[in-house]
């Protein structure tokens, strides 16, 4: 309970400090722009080439926005871990967290919070519902549960990605750009119709990072594209498993930490 209170207090302080800037609302606008423009090449290509087999722009955008919404939720609520490798280790700021009488993981999670990051999950949700209505899918209780499982699973998976990369950052300190493969680059894979995705990518994003498990499979079950039911409900368990592994890596990293700053 106390932990939750601290989490939300830290978030409040973060929001208030950002609102000090005169142009703070531009940051929200900026993320909205990125989110809207990111899939523009997919939309323009579909408008030029038309459907690919069974694949329409709405199907692709549904899968894509499922992944992006999960990513956005993680980015909103675990921003501290997203920033962690870049902001906390080299500067030695991590020492400060170690001194405080409060759970370490919690402190790291809420050390940063950026309100404008919420623009991504909000617009992602709007696209999901728009695509579902265009595809003529009617949501019943079961389907809503699968959808919620997928979104929650996505959030947990990407939170896991951040926690894992933070853990690994203890060892690598500066060579961090590979992180983009599992963050920003990873959901680009959903832009490719699954039948034409190279096997290697498909397997990596199913069995190593369960990104397609929280996007493509639930979408397929909800809209009835032919994947078996059990693959659609695997989103949450797979995400939790992935997070557990990530958490172990984070703990190992923390144990190995040697301060670099002053």
């Amino acid at each position: 309970m106390r932990a939750l209170k601290i989490y939300f207090k830290s978030i409040r302080i973060n929001i208030m400090s950002q609102a000090q800037y005169r142009g703070w609302y531009f940051m929200i606008l900026q993320v909205f722009l990125i989110v809207i423009l990111d899939p523009i090449s997919t939309v323009l290509m579909f408008s030029r080439f038309g459907n690919i087999g069974e694949w329409s722009v709405y199907k692709i955008m549904l899968i894509y926005s499922l992944a992006v919404t999960g990513y956005g939720l993680a980015e909103t609520f675990a921003r501290g871990f997203d920033y962690f490798p870049w902001k906390m280790i080299q500067s030695g700021d991590f020492d400060r967290l170690l001194l405080r009488p409060c759970p370490l993981t919690l402190q790291a999670a809420c050390s940063y919070f950026h309100l404008h990051r919420a623009a991504r999950p909000v617009s992602g949700l709007m696209v999901i519902f728009y695509c579902l209505s265009k595809l003529g899918t009617v949501l019943d209780t079961g389907k809503i549960l699968i959808l919620a499982g997928a979104l929650l699973g996505g959030a947990i998976t990407y939170a896991g990605v951040y926690v894992m990369t933070s853990g690994i950052a203890f060892f690598t300190v500066k060579a961090l750009d590979w992180i983009y493969i599992v963050t920003n680059a990873s959901y680009q894979v959903t832009r490719c119709p699954i039948d034409y995705t190279p096997k290697l990518l498909k397997n990596a994003f199913t069995f190593v990072v369960p990104m397609l498990v929280v996007s493509y499979y639930p979408a397929s079950v909800i809209c009835g594209w032919g994947e078996p039911f059990w693959k659609g409900v695997l989103a949450l368990p797979a995400a939790v498993l992935f997070f557990a592994v990530s958490f172990v890596m984070w703990k190992t990293g923390v144990k190995r930490y040697r301060s670099t700053g002053s």
């Binding site: 005169r22 142009g23 703070w24 609302y25 531009f26 940051m27 929200i28 606008l29 900026q30 404008h116």
Partner: peptide, 9 residues
């Protein structure tokens, strides 16, 4: 005092 938003757009 305008912050980052204005430059990102």
């Amino acid at each position: 005092d305008w912050g980052d938003g204005l430059t990102y757009i």
